[in-house]
Design a protein around this nucleic acid. Structure first.
Length: 362
DNA sequence: AATGCGGGGAG
DNA sequence: CTCCCAGCATT
């Protein structure tokens, strides 16, 4: 059958075509100049769900601060989180630290060097394991990330919803067949992601200059903009935060967030969350533990609302600056700690908090 | 199989 | 505004 031979042809020529395209069009990125598994791992974790432009300065700071995995293993976790601040998905930083310690202490500093062993590390899933295995060790295992889903869905006309388990199996199997024809697995893996990132882009793919245009099912059927199929995500949760910013002698009270919630292990102020919008301190249900203090303190702020948009929540926050009189400090909750502005600058904090403090301190 | 987890840039 | 980014862990 004709269609069968055509399909086989594109399956075997796909990888070499992309590899050739890559050699001409690739960007010069810092992690492409090393085969050190530590640096490759670092770059891959930073780039999880993160654009190259956003992650690049963080990568530079991390390799400068922690030159080796042993340095990272010995790092203070708070300092590490401070360096990660602003990048989001903070569990990545904690998992990074945990794996650095495991490799340094339990594996005698020898980074796992196969896909299967890499998968066992905290924070390393199928994508990152494939990336490290191929980039650092040349293993012939395909990366499947958001770029790959998009490129393969279009070229091969796959309509499966990419958020489903079935789709993951289909794409993984196809990717495994395709990489068999690559001249070099590492180059091919870089190539397909780079191709998705700068050529076969989500909104405006450059089909007119595409090297596989005549083999692309989406192009030939005019469905570039329908593929890949991705089901709707859950609606954004609305949350209302009222922060009580206790201040005394220029120090401010913060505490570490420990609940299973956004910004775990980062620092913020005393927080009252309500089910609906509260526009003034008077409307807040003040708990016993702070009621006395607030009643007898000077409230300096009549705060405007600041909004922090996450991908899954919209947090509307108001900050009430509260000058605590002498003697009342002992009646505040014990998990609050007092810091100077200098000390606060070293604490890892959400962007919402950092922005407020910049406003406060100038 | 579903859900939660940040922040920012592009269009 | 919407989409989605070199995903992963947990339940």
């Amino acid at each position: 059958m004709n269609w069968l031979s055509d399909l086989n042809k594109i399956e075997t020529t796909f990888a070499p075509i992309l590899e050739q395209w890559y050699l001409i069009h690739k960007r010069d990125l810092p992690w492409r100049h090393t085969r050190d598994p530590y640096r490759i791992w670092l770059s891959e974790v930073i780039l999880q769900q993160t654009r190259v432009a956003q992650g690049k300065p963080y990568y530079e700071r991390f390799v400068n601060t922690y030159a080796t995995i042993a340095d990272l293993a010995n790092a203070d976790e708070r300092e590490l989180l401070r360096l990660w601040q602003g990048l989001g998905y903070y569990s990545r930083a904690r998992n990074l630290h945990q794996t650095a310690r495991y490799v340094t202490l339990q594996l005698d500093g020898k980074f796992p060097d196969t896909y299967q062993d890499l998968l066992k590390m905290k924070g390393i899933g199928t994508y990152t394991a494939a990336a490290i295995a191929s980039f650092a060790f040349g293993e012939r295992v395909p990366v499947v990330d958001g770029n790959v889903y998009r490129v393969l869905a279009r070229v091969f006309g796959i309509n499966e919803d990419i958020t489903t388990t079935n789709a993951k199996k289909i794409f993984a199997a196809l990717a495994m067949r395709l990489i068999q024809s690559a001249n070099d697995p590492a180059t091919y893996n870089q190539a397909i992601m780079e191709f998705g990132a700068i050529h076969c882009t989500p909104v405006a793919p450059d089909c007119l200059l595409c090297p596989i245009q005549q083999a692309c099912v989406a192009y030939l059927t005019g469905r570039q903009h329908q593929l890949p199929v991705k089901s709707k995500k859950a609606p954004v949760r609305e949350r209302y935060f009222s922060y009580l910013v206790f201040r005394q002698h220029g120090k401010i009270a913060l505490r570490e967030r420990i609940a299973r919630d956004v910004w775990q292990n980062l620092h913020d102020f005393y927080l009252l969350e309500t089910e609906d919008q509260k526009e003034a301190l008077q409307g807040l249900p003040l708990p016993e533990e702070i009621g006395n203090v607030v009643q007898n303190s000077v409230v300096a702020d009549s705060p405007a609302e600041s909004v922090q948009l996450l991908s899954h929540q919209r947090i509307r926050a108001r900050f009430y600056l509260i000058d605590v009189p002498e003697g009342l400090i002992d009646s505040l909750p014990t998990d609050l700690h007092w810091y100077t502005s200098e000390e606060i600058s070293h604490l890892p904090k959400p962007v919402l908090i950092t922005n407020y403090l910049e406003n406060l301190f100038g």
